[in-house]
Design a binder for these strands. Structure first.
Lengths: 213, 213
DNA sequence: ACTTGATTCAAACAACTGCTTTACTCAAGC
DNA sequence: GCTTGAGTAAAGCAGTTGTTTGAATCAAGT
Protein backbone atom coordinates (compact mmCIF):
# COMPACT_ATOMS: atom_id res chain seq x y z
CA UNK A 1 0.00 0.00 0.00
CA UNK A 2 2.95 2.34 -0.44
CA UNK A 3 1.96 5.50 -2.23
CA UNK A 4 5.13 5.70 -4.32
CA UNK A 5 5.01 5.33 -8.08
CA UNK A 6 7.77 3.86 -10.17
CA UNK A 7 9.05 6.85 -12.03
CA UNK A 8 6.66 9.65 -11.21
CA UNK A 9 5.70 11.04 -7.85
CA UNK A 10 1.94 11.44 -7.58
CA UNK A 11 1.21 14.14 -10.10
CA UNK A 12 -1.69 16.56 -10.19
CA UNK A 13 -5.25 15.48 -9.68
CA UNK A 14 -6.28 15.21 -13.36
CA UNK A 15 -3.35 12.88 -14.01
CA UNK A 16 -4.15 10.74 -11.01
CA UNK A 17 -7.77 10.54 -12.11
CA UNK A 18 -6.75 9.52 -15.61
CA UNK A 19 -4.43 6.89 -14.23
CA UNK A 20 -7.04 5.45 -11.89
CA UNK A 21 -9.71 5.45 -14.58
CA UNK A 22 -7.38 3.67 -16.97
CA UNK A 23 -6.55 0.98 -14.45
CA UNK A 24 -10.17 0.36 -13.47
CA UNK A 25 -11.28 0.43 -17.09
CA UNK A 26 -8.84 -2.35 -17.88
CA UNK A 27 -9.75 -4.34 -14.78
CA UNK A 28 -13.54 -4.20 -14.81
CA UNK A 29 -14.80 -2.48 -17.92
CA UNK A 30 -16.74 0.76 -18.14
CA UNK A 31 -20.06 -0.70 -17.05
CA UNK A 32 -18.75 -1.77 -13.68
CA UNK A 33 -16.99 1.40 -12.62
CA UNK A 34 -18.56 4.03 -10.41
CA UNK A 35 -17.46 7.60 -9.92
CA UNK A 36 -16.56 6.79 -6.32
CA UNK A 37 -14.38 3.90 -7.46
CA UNK A 38 -12.32 6.22 -9.60
CA UNK A 39 -11.96 9.04 -7.11
CA UNK A 40 -11.16 6.67 -4.25
CA UNK A 41 -8.47 4.96 -6.30
CA UNK A 42 -7.05 8.33 -7.29
CA UNK A 43 -7.20 9.71 -3.78
CA UNK A 44 -9.33 12.59 -4.96
CA UNK A 45 -12.70 14.04 -4.15
CA UNK A 46 -15.86 13.01 -5.95
CA UNK A 47 -16.32 16.51 -7.28
CA UNK A 48 -12.89 16.59 -8.87
CA UNK A 49 -14.03 14.58 -11.89
CA UNK A 50 -16.78 17.04 -12.69
CA UNK A 51 -14.45 19.94 -12.10
CA UNK A 52 -11.59 18.77 -14.31
CA UNK A 53 -13.36 16.71 -16.97
CA UNK A 54 -16.96 17.85 -16.94
CA UNK A 55 -18.43 14.45 -16.29
CA UNK A 56 -17.56 10.84 -15.60
CA UNK A 57 -18.23 9.82 -19.19
CA UNK A 58 -15.99 12.59 -20.49
CA UNK A 59 -13.12 11.25 -18.38
CA UNK A 60 -13.72 7.69 -19.51
CA UNK A 61 -13.95 8.75 -23.14
CA UNK A 62 -10.68 10.60 -22.87
CA UNK A 63 -8.93 7.52 -21.54
CA UNK A 64 -10.37 5.27 -24.23
CA UNK A 65 -9.51 7.72 -26.97
CA UNK A 66 -5.94 8.07 -25.83
CA UNK A 67 -5.61 4.28 -25.84
CA UNK A 68 -7.01 4.27 -29.32
CA UNK A 69 -4.63 6.87 -30.69
CA UNK A 70 -1.68 5.19 -29.02
CA UNK A 71 -2.43 1.92 -30.75
CA UNK A 72 -2.92 3.42 -34.17
CA UNK A 73 0.25 5.48 -33.80
CA UNK A 74 2.21 2.33 -33.12
CA UNK A 75 0.58 0.54 -36.01
CA UNK A 76 1.25 3.40 -38.40
CA UNK A 77 4.85 3.68 -37.24
CA UNK A 78 5.55 -0.01 -37.69
CA UNK A 79 3.91 0.02 -41.08
CA UNK A 80 5.86 3.06 -42.21
CA UNK A 81 9.25 1.61 -41.42
CA UNK A 82 8.60 -1.56 -43.40
CA UNK A 83 10.24 -1.68 -46.84
CA UNK A 84 7.92 -1.43 -49.81
CA UNK A 85 8.51 -5.08 -50.70
CA UNK A 86 7.91 -6.36 -47.18
CA UNK A 87 6.66 -9.93 -46.89
CA UNK A 88 3.17 -10.87 -45.81
CA UNK A 89 4.40 -12.08 -42.48
CA UNK A 90 6.05 -8.78 -41.65
CA UNK A 91 2.89 -6.90 -42.59
CA UNK A 92 0.83 -9.10 -40.32
CA UNK A 93 3.31 -8.60 -37.54
CA UNK A 94 3.09 -4.82 -37.83
CA UNK A 95 -0.64 -5.22 -37.63
CA UNK A 96 -0.86 -7.69 -34.78
CA UNK A 97 1.76 -6.58 -32.30
CA UNK A 98 0.26 -3.17 -31.47
CA UNK A 99 -3.26 -4.59 -31.38
CA UNK A 100 -2.72 -7.57 -29.21
CA UNK A 101 -1.36 -7.59 -25.71
CA UNK A 102 1.71 -9.77 -25.83
CA UNK A 103 1.18 -10.91 -22.26
CA UNK A 104 4.83 -10.25 -21.65
CA UNK A 105 5.08 -9.14 -18.07
CA UNK A 106 6.92 -5.97 -18.99
CA UNK A 107 4.26 -4.16 -20.94
CA UNK A 108 1.50 -4.10 -18.41
CA UNK A 109 0.50 -0.91 -20.12
CA UNK A 110 -0.19 -2.61 -23.43
CA UNK A 111 -2.19 -5.33 -21.75
CA UNK A 112 -4.29 -2.64 -20.14
CA UNK A 113 -4.77 -0.94 -23.45
CA UNK A 114 -5.90 -4.12 -25.07
CA UNK A 115 -8.54 -4.69 -22.42
CA UNK A 116 -9.74 -1.11 -22.61
CA UNK A 117 -10.18 -1.24 -26.36
CA UNK A 118 -11.94 -4.57 -26.22
CA UNK A 119 -14.34 -3.18 -23.67
CA UNK A 120 -14.86 -0.02 -25.69
CA UNK A 121 -15.64 -2.06 -28.78
CA UNK A 122 -18.43 -3.86 -27.00
CA UNK A 123 -20.34 -0.85 -25.74
CA UNK A 124 -18.98 2.03 -27.76
CA UNK A 125 -19.89 5.59 -26.86
CA UNK A 126 -20.71 7.92 -29.77
CA UNK A 127 -17.53 9.93 -29.22
CA UNK A 128 -15.35 6.84 -29.30
CA UNK A 129 -17.10 5.42 -32.34
CA UNK A 130 -16.50 8.62 -34.24
CA UNK A 131 -12.83 8.77 -33.39
CA UNK A 132 -12.41 5.10 -34.19
CA UNK A 133 -13.91 5.46 -37.64
CA UNK A 134 -11.78 8.50 -38.36
CA UNK A 135 -8.48 6.97 -37.32
CA UNK A 136 -8.99 3.39 -38.35
CA UNK A 137 -9.87 3.98 -41.97
CA UNK A 138 -6.56 5.23 -43.43
CA UNK A 139 -4.33 2.77 -41.60
CA UNK A 140 -6.51 -0.22 -42.34
CA UNK A 141 -6.82 0.74 -45.98
CA UNK A 142 -3.07 0.95 -46.39
CA UNK A 143 -2.64 -2.33 -44.58
CA UNK A 144 -5.22 -4.07 -46.73
CA UNK A 145 -3.70 -2.69 -49.94
CA UNK A 146 -0.29 -4.01 -49.10
CA UNK A 147 -1.63 -7.34 -47.92
CA UNK A 148 -3.74 -7.85 -51.01
CA UNK A 149 -0.62 -7.79 -53.20
CA UNK A 150 0.51 -10.97 -51.50
CA UNK A 151 -2.81 -12.76 -51.96
CA UNK A 152 -3.99 -11.82 -55.47
CA UNK A 153 -6.19 -14.92 -55.62
CA UNK A 154 -8.46 -13.61 -52.84
CA UNK A 155 -11.22 -11.21 -53.94
CA UNK A 156 -11.17 -7.82 -52.21
CA UNK A 157 -14.47 -8.29 -50.43
CA UNK A 158 -13.41 -11.62 -49.04
CA UNK A 159 -10.05 -10.30 -47.92
CA UNK A 160 -11.87 -7.55 -46.16
CA UNK A 161 -14.01 -10.03 -44.28
CA UNK A 162 -10.93 -11.91 -43.16
CA UNK A 163 -9.36 -8.69 -42.04
CA UNK A 164 -12.45 -7.92 -39.97
CA UNK A 165 -12.53 -11.40 -38.51
CA UNK A 166 -8.90 -11.15 -37.42
CA UNK A 167 -9.62 -7.79 -35.85
CA UNK A 168 -12.47 -9.38 -33.93
CA UNK A 169 -10.30 -12.26 -32.81
CA UNK A 170 -7.46 -10.06 -31.64
CA UNK A 171 -9.82 -7.87 -29.67
CA UNK A 172 -11.64 -10.72 -28.02
CA UNK A 173 -8.47 -12.63 -27.18
CA UNK A 174 -7.46 -9.72 -24.98
CA UNK A 175 -10.57 -10.00 -22.85
CA UNK A 176 -10.82 -11.76 -19.53
CA UNK A 177 -12.74 -14.66 -20.99
CA UNK A 178 -9.71 -15.87 -22.93
CA UNK A 179 -6.97 -14.62 -20.67
CA UNK A 180 -7.01 -17.88 -18.78
CA UNK A 181 -6.85 -20.04 -21.89
CA UNK A 182 -4.00 -18.02 -23.34
CA UNK A 183 -1.99 -18.27 -20.16
CA UNK A 184 -1.13 -21.85 -21.13
CA UNK A 185 0.73 -20.71 -24.23
CA UNK A 186 4.34 -19.64 -23.70
CA UNK A 187 4.21 -15.82 -23.94
CA UNK A 188 7.19 -15.51 -26.24
CA UNK A 189 5.64 -17.98 -28.69
CA UNK A 190 2.15 -16.54 -28.63
CA UNK A 191 2.72 -13.72 -31.08
CA UNK A 192 4.54 -15.96 -33.55
CA UNK A 193 1.85 -18.62 -33.43
CA UNK A 194 -0.85 -16.04 -33.93
CA UNK A 195 0.97 -14.55 -36.89
CA UNK A 196 1.29 -17.99 -38.47
CA UNK A 197 -2.42 -18.58 -37.98
CA UNK A 198 -3.38 -15.20 -39.42
CA UNK A 199 -1.16 -15.61 -42.46
CA UNK A 200 -2.76 -19.00 -43.09
CA UNK A 201 -6.23 -17.51 -42.90
CA UNK A 202 -5.38 -14.63 -45.20
CA UNK A 203 -3.84 -16.86 -47.86
CA UNK A 204 -6.64 -19.44 -47.78
CA UNK A 205 -8.39 -20.40 -50.98
CA UNK A 206 -11.53 -18.25 -51.29
CA UNK A 207 -14.96 -19.81 -50.91
CA UNK A 208 -16.49 -21.32 -54.02
CA UNK A 209 -18.97 -19.14 -55.93
CA UNK A 210 -22.02 -20.90 -54.47
CA UNK A 211 -21.40 -23.66 -52.01
CA UNK A 212 -24.41 -25.31 -50.38
CA UNK A 213 -24.43 -26.06 -46.68
CA UNK B 1 -46.90 -1.14 -30.35
CA UNK B 2 -49.38 -3.95 -30.95
CA UNK B 3 -49.24 -6.53 -28.22
CA UNK B 4 -49.62 -9.52 -30.51
CA UNK B 5 -46.85 -12.06 -30.91
CA UNK B 6 -46.15 -14.00 -34.06
CA UNK B 7 -47.10 -17.48 -33.08
CA UNK B 8 -47.90 -17.30 -29.39
CA UNK B 9 -50.43 -15.13 -27.66
CA UNK B 10 -48.91 -13.46 -24.61
CA UNK B 11 -48.28 -16.39 -22.36
CA UNK B 12 -47.95 -16.44 -18.60
CA UNK B 13 -45.84 -13.95 -16.72
CA UNK B 14 -42.68 -16.08 -16.33
CA UNK B 15 -42.58 -16.65 -20.10
CA UNK B 16 -43.08 -12.98 -20.85
CA UNK B 17 -40.33 -12.12 -18.39
CA UNK B 18 -37.95 -14.60 -19.97
CA UNK B 19 -38.77 -13.24 -23.41
CA UNK B 20 -38.23 -9.64 -22.37
CA UNK B 21 -35.00 -10.45 -20.57
CA UNK B 22 -33.70 -12.29 -23.60
CA UNK B 23 -34.48 -9.41 -25.91
CA UNK B 24 -32.93 -6.79 -23.65
CA UNK B 25 -29.91 -8.98 -23.01
CA UNK B 26 -29.27 -9.19 -26.73
CA UNK B 27 -29.85 -5.49 -27.26
CA UNK B 28 -27.91 -3.91 -24.42
CA UNK B 29 -25.99 -6.52 -22.48
CA UNK B 30 -26.47 -7.51 -18.87
CA UNK B 31 -24.73 -4.50 -17.39
CA UNK B 32 -27.19 -2.06 -18.87
CA UNK B 33 -30.45 -3.72 -17.90
CA UNK B 34 -32.41 -2.81 -14.81
CA UNK B 35 -35.16 -4.77 -13.14
CA UNK B 36 -37.65 -2.12 -14.19
CA UNK B 37 -36.55 -2.37 -17.80
CA UNK B 38 -37.39 -6.05 -17.86
CA UNK B 39 -40.72 -5.82 -16.08
CA UNK B 40 -41.83 -2.83 -18.13
CA UNK B 41 -40.98 -4.62 -21.36
CA UNK B 42 -42.80 -7.72 -20.18
CA UNK B 43 -45.82 -5.79 -18.99
CA UNK B 44 -45.37 -7.23 -15.53
CA UNK B 45 -44.87 -5.87 -12.06
CA UNK B 46 -41.46 -5.36 -10.49
CA UNK B 47 -42.22 -7.93 -7.84
CA UNK B 48 -42.95 -10.65 -10.38
CA UNK B 49 -39.27 -11.29 -11.07
CA UNK B 50 -38.56 -11.95 -7.42
CA UNK B 51 -41.67 -14.06 -7.13
CA UNK B 52 -41.05 -16.31 -10.13
CA UNK B 53 -37.27 -16.41 -10.35
CA UNK B 54 -35.97 -15.38 -6.96
CA UNK B 55 -33.88 -12.49 -8.20
CA UNK B 56 -32.94 -10.50 -11.26
CA UNK B 57 -29.64 -12.30 -11.62
CA UNK B 58 -31.36 -15.68 -11.43
CA UNK B 59 -33.60 -14.72 -14.33
CA UNK B 60 -30.69 -13.43 -16.39
CA UNK B 61 -28.64 -16.51 -15.65
CA UNK B 62 -31.50 -18.75 -16.75
CA UNK B 63 -31.74 -16.95 -20.07
CA UNK B 64 -28.01 -17.10 -20.68
CA UNK B 65 -27.82 -20.74 -19.74
CA UNK B 66 -30.64 -21.72 -22.03
CA UNK B 67 -28.90 -19.91 -24.88
CA UNK B 68 -25.75 -21.78 -24.01
CA UNK B 69 -27.36 -25.22 -23.97
CA UNK B 70 -29.22 -24.48 -27.20
CA UNK B 71 -26.01 -23.72 -29.00
CA UNK B 72 -24.12 -26.74 -27.73
CA UNK B 73 -27.05 -29.01 -28.51
CA UNK B 74 -27.01 -27.81 -32.10
CA UNK B 75 -23.26 -28.24 -32.29
CA UNK B 76 -23.37 -31.73 -30.85
CA UNK B 77 -26.21 -32.76 -33.14
CA UNK B 78 -24.44 -31.53 -36.27
CA UNK B 79 -21.22 -33.20 -35.20
CA UNK B 80 -22.95 -36.50 -34.47
CA UNK B 81 -24.56 -36.81 -37.87
CA UNK B 82 -21.28 -36.29 -39.71
CA UNK B 83 -19.69 -39.48 -41.08
CA UNK B 84 -16.51 -40.62 -39.37
CA UNK B 85 -14.43 -39.67 -42.39
CA UNK B 86 -15.96 -36.22 -42.75
CA UNK B 87 -13.78 -33.60 -44.39
CA UNK B 88 -12.22 -30.67 -42.56
CA UNK B 89 -14.61 -28.26 -44.17
CA UNK B 90 -17.67 -30.14 -42.94
CA UNK B 91 -16.25 -30.26 -39.43
CA UNK B 92 -15.66 -26.54 -39.46
CA UNK B 93 -19.16 -25.98 -40.73
CA UNK B 94 -20.67 -28.03 -37.91
CA UNK B 95 -18.65 -25.91 -35.56
CA UNK B 96 -19.30 -22.49 -37.03
CA UNK B 97 -22.93 -22.48 -38.00
CA UNK B 98 -24.39 -22.94 -34.50
CA UNK B 99 -21.88 -20.51 -33.00
CA UNK B 100 -22.21 -17.66 -35.37
CA UNK B 101 -25.35 -15.73 -36.18
CA UNK B 102 -25.88 -16.12 -39.90
CA UNK B 103 -27.52 -12.73 -40.18
CA UNK B 104 -30.21 -14.27 -42.29
CA UNK B 105 -33.33 -12.36 -41.52
CA UNK B 106 -35.22 -15.48 -40.56
CA UNK B 107 -33.27 -16.48 -37.51
CA UNK B 108 -33.54 -13.39 -35.43
CA UNK B 109 -33.44 -15.81 -32.55
CA UNK B 110 -29.97 -17.05 -33.38
CA UNK B 111 -28.68 -13.55 -33.79
CA UNK B 112 -30.00 -12.77 -30.34
CA UNK B 113 -28.36 -15.86 -28.97
CA UNK B 114 -25.04 -14.89 -30.46
CA UNK B 115 -25.19 -11.49 -28.83
CA UNK B 116 -26.20 -12.92 -25.50
CA UNK B 117 -23.34 -15.39 -25.45
CA UNK B 118 -20.84 -12.76 -26.49
CA UNK B 119 -21.99 -10.54 -23.66
CA UNK B 120 -21.93 -13.43 -21.20
CA UNK B 121 -18.38 -14.26 -22.20
CA UNK B 122 -17.23 -10.77 -21.38
CA UNK B 123 -18.63 -10.50 -17.89
CA UNK B 124 -19.41 -14.07 -16.92
CA UNK B 125 -21.37 -14.83 -13.77
CA UNK B 126 -20.10 -17.75 -11.68
CA UNK B 127 -23.15 -19.86 -12.55
CA UNK B 128 -22.70 -19.32 -16.25
CA UNK B 129 -18.97 -19.94 -16.12
CA UNK B 130 -19.55 -23.27 -14.41
CA UNK B 131 -22.13 -24.41 -16.92
CA UNK B 132 -19.97 -23.26 -19.79
CA UNK B 133 -16.96 -25.22 -18.63
CA UNK B 134 -19.07 -28.31 -18.07
CA UNK B 135 -20.75 -28.28 -21.45
CA UNK B 136 -17.99 -26.89 -23.63
CA UNK B 137 -15.27 -29.35 -22.73
CA UNK B 138 -16.58 -32.62 -24.25
CA UNK B 139 -17.83 -31.07 -27.50
CA UNK B 140 -14.71 -29.02 -28.07
CA UNK B 141 -12.47 -31.96 -27.32
CA UNK B 142 -14.25 -34.16 -29.83
CA UNK B 143 -14.14 -31.39 -32.39
CA UNK B 144 -10.43 -30.80 -31.88
CA UNK B 145 -9.66 -34.51 -32.10
CA UNK B 146 -11.41 -34.88 -35.40
CA UNK B 147 -9.93 -31.69 -36.77
CA UNK B 148 -6.40 -32.63 -35.77
CA UNK B 149 -6.54 -35.72 -38.00
CA UNK B 150 -6.78 -33.41 -40.99
CA UNK B 151 -3.85 -31.24 -39.95
CA UNK B 152 -1.22 -33.65 -38.59
CA UNK B 153 1.53 -31.12 -39.29
CA UNK B 154 0.17 -28.73 -36.65
CA UNK B 155 1.26 -29.39 -33.05
CA UNK B 156 -1.61 -29.94 -30.62
CA UNK B 157 -0.88 -26.84 -28.56
CA UNK B 158 -0.80 -24.65 -31.61
CA UNK B 159 -4.01 -26.15 -32.98
CA UNK B 160 -5.60 -25.43 -29.66
CA UNK B 161 -4.58 -21.79 -29.87
CA UNK B 162 -6.08 -21.52 -33.33
CA UNK B 163 -9.25 -23.11 -32.08
CA UNK B 164 -9.44 -20.56 -29.28
CA UNK B 165 -8.74 -17.70 -31.65
CA UNK B 166 -11.54 -18.76 -33.96
CA UNK B 167 -13.88 -19.02 -30.99
CA UNK B 168 -12.93 -15.49 -30.04
CA UNK B 169 -13.48 -14.24 -33.56
CA UNK B 170 -16.87 -15.87 -33.93
CA UNK B 171 -18.03 -14.47 -30.62
CA UNK B 172 -16.84 -10.96 -31.32
CA UNK B 173 -18.18 -10.88 -34.86
CA UNK B 174 -21.65 -11.27 -33.38
CA UNK B 175 -21.33 -8.12 -31.29
CA UNK B 176 -22.65 -4.71 -32.21
CA UNK B 177 -19.25 -3.35 -33.07
CA UNK B 178 -18.94 -5.60 -36.10
CA UNK B 179 -22.57 -5.93 -37.03
CA UNK B 180 -22.31 -2.89 -39.28
CA UNK B 181 -19.18 -4.07 -41.04
CA UNK B 182 -20.64 -7.50 -41.69
CA UNK B 183 -23.83 -6.07 -43.14
CA UNK B 184 -21.89 -5.34 -46.34
CA UNK B 185 -21.26 -9.03 -46.96
CA UNK B 186 -24.06 -10.94 -48.71
CA UNK B 187 -25.64 -12.99 -45.92
CA UNK B 188 -25.78 -16.22 -47.89
CA UNK B 189 -22.08 -15.99 -48.68
CA UNK B 190 -20.96 -15.01 -45.20
CA UNK B 191 -20.91 -18.49 -43.70
CA UNK B 192 -19.06 -19.97 -46.67
CA UNK B 193 -16.45 -17.25 -46.68
CA UNK B 194 -15.92 -17.62 -42.96
CA UNK B 195 -15.52 -21.37 -43.29
CA UNK B 196 -12.93 -20.89 -46.02
CA UNK B 197 -11.03 -18.49 -43.83
CA UNK B 198 -11.14 -20.76 -40.80
CA UNK B 199 -9.99 -23.79 -42.77
CA UNK B 200 -7.07 -21.76 -44.08
CA UNK B 201 -6.09 -20.71 -40.58
CA UNK B 202 -6.31 -24.24 -39.23
CA UNK B 203 -4.18 -25.73 -41.99
CA UNK B 204 -1.53 -23.01 -41.88
CA UNK B 205 2.10 -23.95 -41.48
CA UNK B 206 2.96 -23.75 -37.77
CA UNK B 207 5.26 -21.04 -36.47
CA UNK B 208 8.96 -21.73 -36.60
CA UNK B 209 10.61 -22.96 -33.38
CA UNK B 210 12.03 -19.56 -32.47
CA UNK B 211 11.29 -16.71 -34.79
CA UNK B 212 12.55 -13.25 -33.87
CA UNK B 213 10.33 -10.20 -34.24
C1' DA C 1 -2.50 42.50 5.08
C1' DC C 2 -5.70 41.89 1.43
C1' DT C 3 -7.46 40.24 -2.75
C1' DT C 4 -7.83 37.00 -6.37
C1' DG C 5 -8.32 32.89 -8.79
C1' DA C 6 -7.85 28.14 -8.79
C1' DT C 7 -8.58 23.99 -6.44
C1' DT C 8 -10.40 20.84 -2.88
C1' DC C 9 -13.70 19.44 0.38
C1' DA C 10 -17.83 17.48 2.86
C1' DA C 11 -22.50 17.51 2.26
C1' DA C 12 -26.52 17.18 -0.16
C1' DC C 13 -29.07 16.47 -4.48
C1' DA C 14 -32.61 13.86 -7.22
C1' DA C 15 -32.79 9.79 -9.75
C1' DC C 16 -32.15 5.23 -9.85
C1' DT C 17 -30.71 0.41 -8.19
C1' DG C 18 -32.59 -4.48 -6.55
C1' DC C 19 -35.60 -6.12 -3.32
C1' DT C 20 -39.43 -6.68 0.21
C1' DT C 21 -43.75 -5.86 2.23
C1' DT C 22 -48.61 -5.20 2.41
C1' DA C 23 -52.98 -5.19 0.31
C1' DC C 24 -55.69 -6.73 -3.36
C1' DT C 25 -57.81 -9.72 -7.20
C1' DC C 26 -59.74 -13.83 -8.67
C1' DA C 27 -60.57 -18.56 -9.85
C1' DA C 28 -60.85 -23.42 -7.67
C1' DG C 29 -62.34 -26.53 -3.68
C1' DC C 30 -65.33 -27.42 -0.12
C1' DG D 1 -70.86 -18.49 1.00
C1' DC D 2 -66.53 -19.21 2.55
C1' DT D 3 -61.83 -20.40 2.43
C1' DT D 4 -57.56 -21.11 0.22
C1' DG D 5 -53.66 -20.09 -2.47
C1' DA D 6 -51.40 -18.48 -6.57
C1' DG D 7 -50.60 -14.31 -8.78
C1' DT D 8 -50.56 -9.27 -9.25
C1' DA D 9 -50.28 -4.42 -7.92
C1' DA D 10 -48.53 -0.26 -5.52
C1' DA D 11 -45.75 1.57 -2.16
C1' DG D 12 -41.72 1.72 0.29
C1' DC D 13 -37.14 -0.16 1.78
C1' DA D 14 -32.10 0.99 2.17
C1' DG D 15 -28.32 1.66 -0.78
C1' DT D 16 -25.91 3.54 -4.87
C1' DT D 17 -25.63 6.27 -8.94
C1' DG D 18 -23.70 10.89 -11.28
C1' DT D 19 -23.83 15.58 -10.38
C1' DT D 20 -24.11 20.07 -7.91
C1' DT D 21 -23.44 23.26 -4.17
C1' DG D 22 -21.31 26.55 -1.08
C1' DA D 23 -17.91 26.93 2.06
C1' DA D 24 -12.95 26.03 3.13
C1' DT D 25 -8.12 26.05 1.53
C1' DC D 26 -4.08 27.86 -0.41
C1' DA D 27 -0.48 29.76 -3.14
C1' DA D 28 0.48 33.94 -5.95
C1' DG D 29 -0.19 39.10 -6.89
C1' DT D 30 -0.52 43.60 -5.25
Amino acid sequence: MSSGCLNTVMRDTPSRLREAAERLLAERGAARISLRDITDAAGANVASVGYHFGSKDALLDEVVRSSLTEMYDQQRARLAQLPEDAGLEDLVRAWVLPTFATHAEQDEKQRRRSRILQDALNQPSPAVTAQLAEMAAPVQRQLLDRISRHVPHVPQEELWLRHTAVLAALGALGSDAFAGMLAAVPPDRLADQLVAWIVGGLTAEPAGPRQTA
